[in-house]
Every structure is written in structure tokens, then in C-alpha cells.
Design a protein around this nucleic acid. Structure first.
Length: 426
RNA sequence: GGAGAGAUAUCGAAGUGGUCAUAACGGGGCUGACUCGAAAUCAGUUUGUGCGAAAGCACACGAGGGUUCGAAUCCCUCUCUCUCCGCCA
């Protein structure tokens, strides 16, 4: 959520910056400003009556004690109470509309981002060289099937398209990756949290996924009188609500969390022919990093998260690049995002394995997450998140980049201690 | 699944229709006094949100509704916590 005071003072700038994100917000902003004026007029009007009510109210016990007639006062009070009720109803209407417009506004992109979409994404740095093969490399679907790493058929049997089973060495490899990620993060001072995989609506709202993208997640069927819950699409949705409605102290920050969870996404209509195998499924495994920081420390934390993600990929020995996303390619909640993309030889170009973002105070405002400064002042803190990492793109890249001419796959050094072998053969 | 109890500030807790919400009483924290220092003691201080240029005003007793001139207090719905019974990895 954006700051209404900021919008009020800089409406044109807000519209211009949102335009960079591909959002024409001129009408919404105009409407918001109108509703805000209405809202404040109603508030001060109602409060004046309430103050009068309170004053009169104090007289009643006194009058009664003295045996005076209170019927006149009662009549006056009734009148005021009717007025207040009417005003409050109106206010509620205005605020409902105001809030829904405010919640619909995306975050402001940072000033230095290029406008527009993917075409304006800017690669910042490359690591390593693309893999060259002196034989015809196989794609990861064939490799994984041949080596018995992934059982696509039985995955589909169990749950349908978009699901697969990690089997045999594939499951070992997947688990090894997760172990490698988690151990690395722990050594970098992150705290591991194992969170619920079913979440309440407020979590999605705070993270910024709701109300707009509420249809992109799986909702659990619940009884009429039961709280509605959805399967989390990323651990960020849980981790970013950890401190909802809390006031942390300056000494509490930064909070550095990681969590491993499966991620559940409907991915309705987004399935593409070139995304075979496990590149885009309804369930995938991911370790997520989240930081809560002081506002002035979030840029530093952002760089830290990017390098944490980069180091994980480096550790696996992969060629990758880090890309600064153009404004429109950043998700709605985020002020800036860098993607780490690796090369999957059978696919054109690069695929995202990590996305690191700074939400600044956007999520903090939605979830009332604040920090009490040492001088006693209270302000919104900043939240950041990044994948560290999602395995569903790493494993295809791993088997494709590390394949040998006989179809076996070399296990990266860092994973060997978890698997107990340096090569996966038929 | 059945039965019951509860939710008030930083913690425990009082308040059962108005004069009792910064909120009794007790503890904790902070500041000061006493002290070489500490403990003990004494004094002071210690919620958040909204509106407002400010003074200030309003709101909040788990959440949302209702009754009433007036609700922490009465009524309804929901959320959460605890206890007992049943079931159970």
C-alpha cells in the first residue's frame, strides 16, 4: 500500500511512476484523492458531534443526582446519536471504496528502473561460460526419465498434469539441493522457520497478492463456518506476515528468515510448450529468504540477498546472469527486483531461478509492521524477499549442464556429501 | 467430535449500564534521589491509531454487529487460548 499523504502531495509523480509499471493510475488517483477529502470531512464532522456527546453525557449522572429533569438532554442526545450513525454509515461506504482502490495500487518502482517490460530488462553481470558439448546433449526430461530421477507418468497418475514425482537418485538430489541451500543460509545468519502451508486470507493481503491475484492460488474447500485457507504460492506469503501488527524495536532488526516449503500455484493458462518437464508445475520446492529491515538499511539488505542467491548458484558451478528487471516486469508489490537466470541448454535463453525484491514499506503498510526507533518514534519497516533457491529450475539445469556423452550426470562438488556419490549413472 | 472456562496496557489482574480507561492493585522497564557501586527504599515515568498547521479532539477492553440517550459491562455472530472426555500420527 502506498502512503496517502505522499499521494496527496505528489499526485502527478505517483501517476508518472506507476505508468512506468504499465499501470494507468490517473483515474484511480483522482478518485482516491476525492474519496480521501470526503473521508476526512466526514471524520472531523463526526468527531465534533462525538465530542459534544461526551460532554453532555458527563452531565447526566450529575443531573440525576440533583433530581433535575433529563428528558430534554435525552432528546438532544438521541438526535446526535442518529446523526452520528448516519455519518458513520456513509463513512464506512467511502472508506470501503477508498481502501479497495488503495489496495489495488501497485508499489512505486524505484527511480532508476527502466520503464516497460521484459524487453528492457538489463543484464548486470554474467558468471561463467555457457556449457559447450562435443556431443548432442539430451534435454532434462529425457535425462531424468532415463536415469529414473523423475517419474512424470506416475506423477500425472496421482495428481494430473503439472505434477511429478522425484524418485530414486532424483529425490536424493532434490533433497541434497535443499540441504545445501539451507546450510548455506544458516551459516549466513538466517533463521530457519518451518511455517504452515495453509494460510489465512490476511497473509495474501499483506504480501500484496490479494485481492488482485486471489484466483491464482489453491483455495481449500471449507465448511460454511470455517476459516478460508489457501495453499501458499511461496513461503514469502507466510514469512512476510510473521510480524504483522507488531512493533519491533530497532535492536530486533534486521530479521533474517529462511523457510523451505513446497509452493502451490494454479498457473492457469500460463503453460507454454517450451516449458516441458518440471519448469512450470503446480507444486515445486523452494527455499525462500525474507528480511525485515530499518528503512535506511533495505538497499544494503537487497544487495546481501542478491549475493546470497548468486553464491548458491556459483557454488553449484553454473553459468548464470543477474538481471535488473524493468519496472513493468517487477511484481506489483515490489519497488525493485533482480532475477538470477541460468542457462538450460535445451531451452532458448535463460530461466529464472531466483528473484530478489525490495518491497520497501509497501507490505509493511498493508500489514502494519513497524519499528520503534531508539528515540521512540514509530515508523514502517521495510521487507525484502528472495528465492534462495527454487529447485524446479535448478535440477533441469544441473542434469543438462552436467551430462556426459553416455547419459550420466556429474554431481556438483557441494552436493556430494549429501548423496555419497560423484556421478549419477543408469 | 462432546462438555466447560476465558480474552482488559509490557506481564498478572480489578472493574458486571453513566460519576472507573492511561485504566484500581501488584509486577516489569526506564529516569532520578540515596550509595564508592549494587541491593533495598523513595519519587517520577511507561499504549496504539485516526483527524488536525497547532492547541487539541476522537477511537480502541480479542473482532464484527445489535440493544440503549449512554456498553468493558446486556444480546448475537465470528476468531483465538485453556481445561476435561473421545479419537489419533
Amino acid at each position: 500500500m502506498l502512503d496517502i499523504k505522499y499521494i496527496k502531495e505528489n499526485p502527478d509523480e505517483v501517476v508518472a511512476r506507476l505508468a512506468k509499471k504499465g499501470k494507468d493510475a490517473a483515474e484511480d488517483i483522482a478518485q482516491i484523492l476525492k474519496l480521501d477529502a470526503e473521508r476526512r470531512a466526514l471524520i472531523s464532522g463526526t468527531e465534533a458531534i462525538k465530542a459534544e456527546q461526551n460532554k453532555v453525557n458527563k452531565l447526566i449522572p450529575q443531573y440525576k443526582k440533583e433530581g433535575k429533569d433529563v428528558s430534554e438532554i435525552f432528546a438532544k442526545m438521541k438526535e446526535m446519536s442518529v446523526q452520528v450513525k448516519a455519518d458513520e454509515e456513509k463513512l464506512k461506504e467511502v472508506e470501503t471504496l477508498f481502501n479497495s482502490l488503495m489496495l489495488g495500487l501497485p508499489n512505486l518502482p524505484d527511480e532508476d528502473l527502466l520503464p516497460g517490460g521484459k524487453e528492457n530488462n538489463e543484464p548486470l553481470r554474467y558468471f561463467g561460460e555457457p556449457k559447450k558439448f562435443d556431443f548432442e546433449p539430451k534435454n532434462h526430461v529425457d535425462l531424468c526419465t532415463d536415469l529414473g530421477l523423475i517419474d512424470y507418468k506416475r506423477g500425472a497418475k496421482l495428481s494430473g498434469a503439472g505434477f511429478w514425482i522425484y524418485s530414486g537418485m532424483g529425490a536424493r538430489l532434490e533433497w541434497a539441493l535443499l540441504n545445501y541451500f539451507i546450510e548455506t543460509h544458516l551459516s549466513n545468519g538466517f533463521e530457519l522457520m518451518l511455517v504452515p502451508h495453509m494460510l489465512g486470507y490476511e497473509c495474501g493481503l499483506t504480501a500484496g497478492q490479494f485481492p488482485k491475484f486471489a484466483d491464482d492460488v489453491y483455495w481449500l474447500e471449507t465448511a460454511e463456518d470455517e476459516r478460508r485457507r489457501f495453499m501458499l504460492p511461496t513461503a514469502e506469503t507466510a514469512l512476510v506476515s510473521l510480524h504483522r501488527d507488531e512493533i519491533l524495536t530497532e535492536a530486533d532488526l534486521p530479521k533474517k528468515y529462511i523457510s523451505y516449503t513446497p509452493c502451490f500455484r494454479r498457473e492457469a493458462g500460463s503453460y507454454r510448450a517450451d516449458e516441458r518437464g518440471m519448469v512450470r508445475g503446480h507444486q515445486f520446492n523452494k527455499v525462500e529468504m525474507v528480511q525485515y529491515t530499518l528503512p535506511e538499511k533495505s538497499d544494503e539488505a537487497f544487495e546481501e540477498l542478491v549475493s546470497c542467491a548468486e553464491n548458491l548458484v556459483k557454488g553449484l558451478g553454473f553459468h548464470f546472469r543477474t538481471v535488473k528487471l524493468a519496472a513493468e516486469d517487477c511484481s506489483a508489490s515490489m519497488a525493485r527486483t533482480y532475477d538470477i537466470e541460468i542457462n538450460i541448454p535445451s531451452m532458448d535463453g535463460y530461466k529464472e531461478v531466483s528473484s530478489v525484491s525490495n518491497a520497501r514499506d509497501y507490505q509493511a503498510r498493508r500489514g502494519m509492521m513497524r519499528v520503534r526507533r531508539d528515540d521512540g518514534k514509530i515508523e514502517f519497516l521495510h521487507t525484502l524477499n528472495g528465492s534462495g533457491l527454487a529447485t524446479s529450475r535448478i535440477l533441469p539445469a544441473l542434469v543438462e549442464q552436467n551430462q556426459l556423452s553416455d547419459g550420466s550426470v556429474v554431481v556438483p562438488e557441494v552436493l556430494r556429501k549429501y548423496i555419497g556419490t560423484d556421478i549419477i549413472k543408469k
